[in-house]
């Protein structure tokens, strides 16, 4: 295969992918999206010759537009722009999960600080205020009191960018000191790990301890459903374990479309990058013979 790889930074994750792709005998064309332009008629060289394009942009905004253009050129792109759109915005993700009946934390969105404070008070303390676009746990606020909520809301309202005035308020989920990351390929779980920390944020990027995790059938099924809810592809599905006496055992709080898997690869016995390349080969072969195995298209 000839594989295009859109990037602006080669993280360890991209390096693992590049190595696996080359070891499988594929030709990789790295395209730094900072250096190319995307017109209406033709893709930037050499994307036009590629059998598939991998969107591995570090910046969400670039990922969304670049994958949209690649799709516009009728080139296969992983992940699809529809999936990127749903996963890159927490409001979109929450709505997609909810529409698909996938358990996800209770969430309220408000557009003014006053309405947001009402939403926060309705949840009670603690609750969580998240940016609608963001990653690695940045700008996440656990609100323990009204005074803290007022301060954070004021800060967000003065940050300037309109996205900070979309207030995404969420219930605080009492998790057992860890959450779970599942890497899925068109819904099929490939590997999973727990991410443990004394801090309420358990992102691997924030230093959480990562350990291989054996999924039970319910978690596997939720990962499949969460993937399908956003259109499938190469995804990182994040779940939290619930400890309630009844109801769901898990809740899905995030689906990542440019998933980082360096920590997962180190924690599990699975060669994650090789699994991704195997899947990509099958996917491209299926597209070539007209039996595209991708899940049903989502309606963003």
């Amino acid at each position: 295969m000839e594989v295009g790889l859109l990037y602006s930074r080669i993280r360890p994750d991209e390096k693992l992918l590049l190595t696996a792709l080359r070891e499988h005998g594929h030709e990789v064309h790295k395209v730094d999206v900072r250096e190319v332009t995307f017109g209406l008629d033709a893709p930037p060289e050499p994307l036009g010759d590629c059998d598939v394009v991998l969107d591995r942009c570090l910046a969400t905004s670039r990922s969304r537009y670049a994958s949209r253009f690649v799709d516009h050129y009728d080139l296969p792109v992983v992940n699809s722009p529809e999936t990127a759109k749903l996963c890159s915005d927490k409001v979109e993700t929450t709505l997609a999960l909810s529409a698909a009946g996938v358990p996800t934390p209770e969430t309220t969105v408000a557009f003014t600080t006053e309405a947001a404070l009402d939403a926060i008070e309705a949840f009670g303390y603690p609750c969580v205020l998240k940016p609608v676009v963001g990653s690695w746990g940045r700008l996440m606020a656990k609100l323990d009191s009204r005074s803290a909520a007022e301060a954070v809301l004021e800060h967000k309202a003065t940050l300037g960018h309109y996205e900070h005035s979309v207030f995404y308020v969420q219930q605080f989920v009492e998790k057992p000191g860890r959450d779970l990351r599942v890497l899925t390929l068109d819904g099929e779980p490939v590997a999973a790990m727990s991410r443990s920390s004394d801090h309420w944020l358990t992102n691997a990027a924030a230093g959480a301890e990562t350990t291989a995790f054996d999924l039970d059938p319910e978690a596997e099924q939720l990962a499949r459903e969460a993937s399908q809810a956003v259109g499938g592809g190469l995804l990182g599905v994040d779940l939290m374990e619930l400890d309630g006496p009844d109801g769901d055992a898990y809740t899905v709080h995030e689906v990542n479309h440019t998933v980082e898997f360096k920590a997962l690869d180190a924690a599990v016995d699975v060669d994650v990058a090789a699994a991704v390349v195997d899947w990509l080969e099958t996917k491209v072969a299926s597209m070539d013979d007209g039996s595209d195995p991708t899940p049903a298209e989502v309606q963003p």
Partner: peptide, 11 residues
């Protein structure tokens, strides 16, 4: 010199 961290970086 590497670019500074931008707000929309991540996974």
């Amino acid at each position: 010199k590497a670019p500074e961290l931008a707000e929309d970086w991540g996974e």
